[in-house]
């Protein structure tokens, strides 16, 4: 978990996404699969810009939600890991343009 916190995170190339009624819907191009995010995941997804690390995303979420930092880091790391596996996000040791 500690390693993922220092990674920079960006949306994968060519994904399509739209937020409808506070929940994001994403289509991954390779398989044309649609994915849904709940409201909290959507607000985290909105802050992803390739220039923020996972840790920075946790800090932004900490300001928004009344949850302990340790819990946030664990949950957001899991979420980012899952979205990376689905080819929705990409992680890197350096900022991503």
């Amino acid at each position: 978990m500690s390693s993922i916190l220092n990674k920079f995170v960006a949306r994968a190339d060519n994904i399509a996404y739209r937020t409808v009624a506070d929940e994001a819907v994403i289509m991954t191009p390779a398989d044309s699969m649609l994915h849904e995010l709940n409201e909290v995941a959507t607000s985290i997804f909105a802050n992803i810009n390739g220039k923020r690390t996972v840790r920075e995303l946790c800090k932004l979420a900490f300001n928004e939600y009344e949850v302990e930092m340790a819990r946030l880091e664990a949950d957001i790391s899991t979420l980012i890991g899952e979205l990376e596996k689905k080819n929705i996000l990409q992680l890197s040791d350096a900022p991503i343009n």
Binding site: A21, V25, M27, S32, M33, L34, E36
Partner: peptide, 15 residues
């Protein structure tokens, strides 16, 4: 047309 018909339907209904 995207796959995952259930999400597609839910999305259209929300819209």
């Amino acid at each position: 047309m995207p796959r995952s018909t259930k999400i597609f339907k839910r999305l259209q209904q929300k819209a």
